[in-house]
Amino acid sequence: MDFTHYPLRVRLARVLWEIAAAYGRRSPQGMVVDIRLTQDEMATLCGAAQVSLQKALSELRSEGIVSTRGIVVRDSEALRSVADLA
């Protein structure tokens, strides 16, 4: 997916959305992704430096959109909004 012209926050949200859609399962906590990705791997998927990814991920966590004890999408509508998906 070519999205390098988007801000990192949008790219990260899109990557998380795609991963959750492909590998997630519903649970009371949200959409739980049963694959393990390191932050380094996520940074590569987003085309970003790891330190930049950490900041963007921290923002999504603090907003309650995702949890990173594993990957859990807690608020899928907010994630779609950040990802700028229709």
Rank of each mutant, 00 (worst) to 15 (best):
M1I: 12
M1T: 13
D2P: 04
D2Q: 10
F3N: 09
F3L: 14
T4K: 10
H5R: 06
Y6Q: 00
P7N: 03
P7D: 01
P7H: 01
L8F: 03
V10G: 02
V10P: 00
R11I: 00
L12W: 02
A13L: 02
A13H: 00
A13E: 00
A13M: 03
R14E: 01
R14M: 02
L16C: 06
W17P: 10
W17C: 13
E18T: 15
E18R: 14
E18D: 15
I19G: 01
I19L: 06
A20W: 00
A21P: 11
A21Q: 15
A21K: 14
A21C: 15
A21E: 15
A21L: 15
A21V: 14
Y23K: 13
Y23L: 12
Y23M: 10
G24S: 04
R25H: 12
R25E: 11
R26C: 14
S27Q: 05
S27N: 03
S27H: 08
P28V: 05
P28H: 03
P28M: 05
Q29F: 04
Q29R: 13
Q29I: 12
Q29P: 06
G30M: 06
M31E: 12
V32Q: 07
D34G: 13
I35Q: 11
I35H: 09
I35W: 05
R36Q: 14
R36V: 15
L37I: 03
T38C: 08
Q39K: 09
Q39P: 10
D40S: 15
E41S: 08
E41Y: 09
M42Y: 08
M42S: 06
M42R: 07
A43D: 03
A43C: 08
T44L: 14
L45R: 09
L45P: 05
G47Y: 03
A48Q: 04
A48N: 06
Q50K: 15
V51S: 15
V51F: 15
L53P: 02
Q54A: 13
Q54V: 13
Q54N: 13
K55L: 07
K55S: 07
K55F: 03
A56S: 07
L57H: 07
L57N: 04
S58A: 11
S58M: 08
E59D: 10
L60A: 07
R61G: 06
R61M: 10
S62T: 14
S62V: 13
E63R: 09
E63I: 05
E63W: 07
E63T: 10
E63V: 07
G64S: 09
G64V: 07
G64I: 07
I65W: 01
I65M: 05
I65L: 04
T68P: 07
T68G: 08
R69T: 12
G70C: 05
I71V: 11
I71Q: 02
V72Q: 05
V72C: 10
V73E: 01
R74C: 13
S76W: 15
S76P: 14
E77L: 13
E77V: 09
A78K: 06
A78W: 02
L79S: 05
L79I: 05
R80K: 13
S81Y: 13
S81T: 12
A83N: 01
A83G: 00
A83L: 00
A83P: 00
D84T: 12
D84I: 11
D84N: 15
L85I: 06
L85T: 03
L85D: 06
A86P: 11
A86R: 09
A86H: 08
